Computed example of a mutant assay.
Amino acid sequence: MSAPLADQIENLLPQTQCTKCGYPACRPYAEAVANGEASYNQCPPGGAEGVARLANLLGKPVIALNPANGPERPRPVALIDEALCIGCTLCIQACPVDAIVGAAKLMHTVVPSLCTGCDLCVAPCPVDCIAMVDVTGANTGWDAWSQQQADDARDRHDFHGMRLKREKEENDARLAAKATAKLQALEAEAAASPEDLAEQARKKAIVQAAIERARLKKEQMAAAAAGTGENHE
């Protein structure tokens, strides 16, 4: 049984996760192409070879790369000027494959072998200390990238997404625990000082409302995740 069309398209993309196609990552672009919502010539990192690969899969003619999405070019790697870096972590947050290491208020650096050349770290930098340096000479598109590099980049991007999801869940759990503890403290306060019931009831209602909002948001996220999983099957 052949894989779904979106999976086959995604397998032909370079997995730089650069958003130049107009979508937030390679997977959404693959789904858009499969659904007929996007053309197969919107991936600059794949270049002309990438367009040809997708055209062959889709049974369509080879067409030129859409210039609106950017030019085919040699693969760049981000380079941080360590003397200018202020340790703001904005580039770390922007990197879709966790290729930048560092900590708040400390110098950051790029791991060249992990960088996909997506450019996404450049714009957020408040001190303009990141440069994109070509590392593949005259080789562009798929000639500047390998299938193994693409596969590795996809794995890192998937891990990046799972890490962010886990960190958010852990933070939400901490906030929920604090809200529950606050509610318990208010209930204990009400039991100890019944003369101020109106004010205590108001505070309790605020905390209960916050807990309920967090519960509903968690259910919505779970439902959305379940829907995404169904779409990938």
Results as ranks from 00 to 15, higher is better:
residue 127 V to W: 11
residue 52 A to E: 03
residue 189 E to F: 06
residue 215 R to G: 08
residue 20 K to M: 09
residue 192 A to K: 12
residue 40 Y to I: 13
residue 187 E to F: 14
residue 150 A to G: 15
residue 205 A to Q: 06
residue 220 Q to A: 15
residue 220 Q to C: 06
residue 163 R to A: 14
residue 72 E to D: 07
residue 173 A to I: 14
residue 231 N to K: 14
residue 60 K to V: 05
residue 121 C to R: 06
residue 164 L to R: 15
residue 26 C to L: 01
residue 174 R to I: 09
residue 161 G to N: 09
residue 193 S to M: 10
residue 66 N to K: 08
residue 168 K to M: 05
residue 133 V to H: 04
residue 47 G to T: 02
residue 19 T to D: 12
residue 55 A to Y: 02
residue 138 A to T: 15
residue 158 D to Y: 12
residue 82 E to Y: 01
residue 105 K to M: 12
residue 74 P to M: 03
residue 164 L to E: 07
residue 188 A to F: 13
residue 177 A to N: 09
residue 230 E to C: 09
residue 92 I to A: 06
residue 53 R to D: 00
residue 156 R to W: 10
residue 178 K to Y: 08
residue 60 K to G: 05
residue 91 C to D: 01
residue 153 A to F: 12
residue 177 A to D: 14
residue 171 N to Y: 14
residue 181 A to E: 15
residue 5 L to Q: 08
residue 179 A to G: 07
residue 190 A to R: 12
residue 159 F to W: 07
residue 71 P to S: 13
residue 192 A to N: 07
residue 129 C to E: 10
residue 50 G to R: 00
residue 28 P to A: 00
residue 209 A to Q: 10
residue 23 Y to V: 13
residue 43 C to P: 07
residue 53 R to I: 00
residue 159 F to D: 06
residue 73 R to H: 10
residue 74 P to G: 13
residue 145 W to A: 01
residue 49 E to Q: 15
residue 166 R to V: 06
residue 169 E to M: 06
residue 140 T to W: 00
residue 115 C to M: 12
residue 110 V to T: 13
residue 63 I to H: 00
residue 189 E to C: 15
residue 7 D to E: 14
residue 149 Q to L: 12
residue 189 E to K: 10
residue 22 G to F: 08
residue 178 K to S: 13
residue 13 L to A: 00
residue 138 A to N: 09
residue 62 V to P: 05
residue 44 P to E: 05
residue 158 D to F: 13
residue 33 V to P: 02
residue 130 I to N: 03
residue 87 G to T: 03
residue 82 E to Q: 14
residue 66 N to E: 12
residue 138 A to M: 11
residue 100 I to A: 02
